[in-house]
Amino acid sequence: MSIQHFRVALIPFFAAFCLPVFAHPETLVKVKDAEDQLGARVGYIELDLNSGKILESFRPEERFPMMSTFKVLLCGAVLSRVDAGQEQLGRRIHYSQNDLVEYSPVTEKHLTDGMTVRELCSAAITMSDNTAANLLLTTIGGPKELTAFLHNMGDHVTRLDRWEPELNEAIPNDERDTTMPAAMATTLRKLLTGELLTLASRQQLIDWMEADKVAGPLLRSALPAGWFIADKSGAGERGSRGIIAALGPDGKPSRIVVIYTTGSQATMDERNRQIAEIGASLIKHW
């Protein structure tokens, strides 16, 4: 067993022997301040990774656009098919120029040779490549099948209805392509620590998230040296922004954090800054 596999296998073990965790309302004060600064709703939840206990939450059962955070769930569904012998990570998928959609920095470079399922998941999570996500959605049967996968996990809230990039439209009061912070946090925890996926697939999923290259201005910008984070960000229309993450000190994750916002007129930089400040408060009061 590799060191990384050992780390993920012992996530519940280490967490069980940690000192009790206590909620700190100071972080919620910052979440509410972010709402004021952005002029928009902000949803927040913080779960203990081992027990699933909610440590703090704000608007945990209000719907927010998922945006690209759905790509972690998508690759979880792909990995479940791999575990069941219905898919192979090494299978190569070929596609054409007509398949390319807006923001496809990886797939646009491989029109000639195609990409493997493993490479597509890596591109979808680490670079948020939209064509990679659409190609992977095709392998599982489309958005409705991802929703069905989530329902089978016990998540009857999260739903995907459309493809990239239309799913980022974020129309107010439109339930399409949305989740709730509580539902997303619980589902992410199941994917990373539950028995739904094999140990190898859980490790692969967290490795992809740990290698995320496009979430630097968010929670990662607030992390002290030595902290662990595996995350996936999302951005959408109407001032929408979000991030889902597993993080913790001492090089291992111990909490799940989900943050979503929508309806702001603020710039992307300002949305990023507010999420980073929430992260800084979380870490300060850990």
Rank of each mutant, 00 (worst) to 15 (best):
T69S: 06
R271W: 03
L219P: 04
I11R: 05
T69D: 00
A133F: 02
G43C: 04
V106M: 12
L111I: 13
V257Y: 05
T267M: 11
I243Q: 03
K284M: 10
A266C: 14
V21Y: 05
L160F: 10
A266W: 06
P165N: 08
I45Y: 09
W286I: 05
S264E: 04
P224H: 06
E145K: 14
W227K: 00
R238K: 13
M67Q: 08
L100H: 04
L55W: 07
T261R: 03
Q97G: 13
A148D: 14
G234C: 06
H110R: 10
N168E: 04
P60I: 12
R7E: 08
G248E: 01
L167D: 03
L219K: 04
E35D: 05
E166Y: 15
G251M: 10
D161W: 03
T187D: 12
K190S: 14
A84F: 09
M153Y: 08
T178H: 02
R273D: 10
E175W: 13
Y260K: 00
L120F: 04
A132G: 05
P143D: 03
G216Q: 13
A23D: 05
L120N: 02
E26L: 14
R255D: 01
E164S: 00
T262F: 05
L167A: 08
N272Q: 05
T261G: 03
Q97F: 15
D231Q: 05
F58T: 08
S57K: 12
P172W: 09
K53N: 15
D269F: 12
L73V: 12
K109C: 09
H151R: 14
R159Q: 09
P217N: 11
I125K: 00
D207H: 09
T186H: 14
R59N: 09
K32T: 09
S68Y: 00
Q265L: 14
V72Y: 01
S240F: 03
A183H: 12
H156E: 12
E237W: 10
F64W: 03
H151Y: 14
N98G: 12
M115V: 07
D174H: 04
W208G: 02
V106S: 08
I244C: 09
F70K: 02
R176H: 09
A183E: 11
L100F: 09
Q265E: 14
R273K: 15
G239R: 02
I171Q: 15
N168W: 03
P105T: 06
P165A: 07
F70D: 01
A211T: 10
D231R: 03
Q203H: 14
V42G: 01
V29M: 11
L191Q: 04
G43A: 08
C121R: 00
G39M: 10
R41F: 08
A34G: 07
G251Q: 11
G90I: 11
V72L: 05
A276P: 01
M180K: 14
I171W: 14
A185R: 00
A34F: 09
P224N: 06
L89R: 03
T262Q: 02
E56F: 04
F228A: 09
Y44M: 09
A276I: 07
M180S: 15
G216Y: 08
M127T: 13
C18V: 08
P12Q: 10
G85H: 12
A132T: 02
P105C: 04
E277Y: 08
H24S: 14
C121S: 05
V101E: 09
V101C: 10
A246E: 06
F13P: 07
Y95W: 10
T107E: 01
L219C: 04
R271Q: 10
